[in-house]
């Protein structure tokens, strides 16, 4: 039950992009087309879960030696290597998926939402299983935000009534703000 609560709260209430403002760069950058936004979202779910699988045990080691302050450095190191490894594996065994994810996979290395998930797992004191649930929820939330935003943007792109001064980036930022406001409505739904 707790697992479901965590997943739902990460998707709706504590959505990484729209409520915690992590991973804004791909959110604004890769949301022009619906299919690439979807690809990015799926890749993020994948990497978030993998990164959690790897960083949670490492944190136990760091805690044992009482050097938890090295968390950020070690996590970034591990996540970057992990993404590289995954890329090699995909290239060798699932070339079609590698091609579909394309440039998004290396881009995720620097996505702060991934590091954010790993750190929030530790800070919230979740166990291994709950951490993985947290990662899945965060990833799905990211995917949801990306797909919603890309859908809105692609509609707005073809709109003629947009005033000259709002075209492009200003409209994108306003749209993002409104989407974020809408998600504020979910607050209090779960803990």
């Amino acid at each position: 039950m707790l697992a479901i609560t965590i997943i739902m709260s990460m998707i709706l209430v504590n959505n990484y992009v729209l409520a915690q403002f992590l991973g804004i760069c791909p959110f604004l950058g890769v949301s022009k087309k619906l299919d690439s936004a979807f690809g990015m979202g799926v890749a993020v779910i994948f990497v978030m879960v993998l990164a959690t699988l790897a960083t949670w045990p490492i944190m136990q080691v760091l805690n044992k030696f009482d050097i938890a302050y090295l968390q950020t450095v070690v996590f970034i190191l591990v996540i970057a290597s992990l993404v590289q490894l995954v890329e090699m594996l995909l290239k060798k065994y699932i070339p079609s998926l590698h091609k579909a994810l394309g440039v998004f996979l290396p881009l995720i290395t620097t996505n702060c939402a991934v590091l954010g998930v790993c750190i929030s797992n530790i800070d919230s004191g979740y166990g291994y299983f709950l951490s993985i649930c947290n990662a899945i929820g965060a990833g799905v939330g990211f995917l949801l935000a990306m797909v919603l935003f890309a859908g809105v943007r692609s509609k707005l792109e073809n709109e003629n009534g947009v005033p000259e001064a709002f075209k492009g980036v200003p409209l994108t930022l306003i749209t993002a703000a409104m989407l974020s406001l809408a998600f504020m409505g979910f607050s209090g739904l779960f803990q």
Binding site: L62, F65, I67, L70, V73, V74, L77, V78, S81
Partner: peptide, 12 residues
Amino acid sequence: PILIVVAVGLVC
């Protein structure tokens, strides 16, 4: 700490 970070780096 130095040894551990180096070890993690080397393993990666």
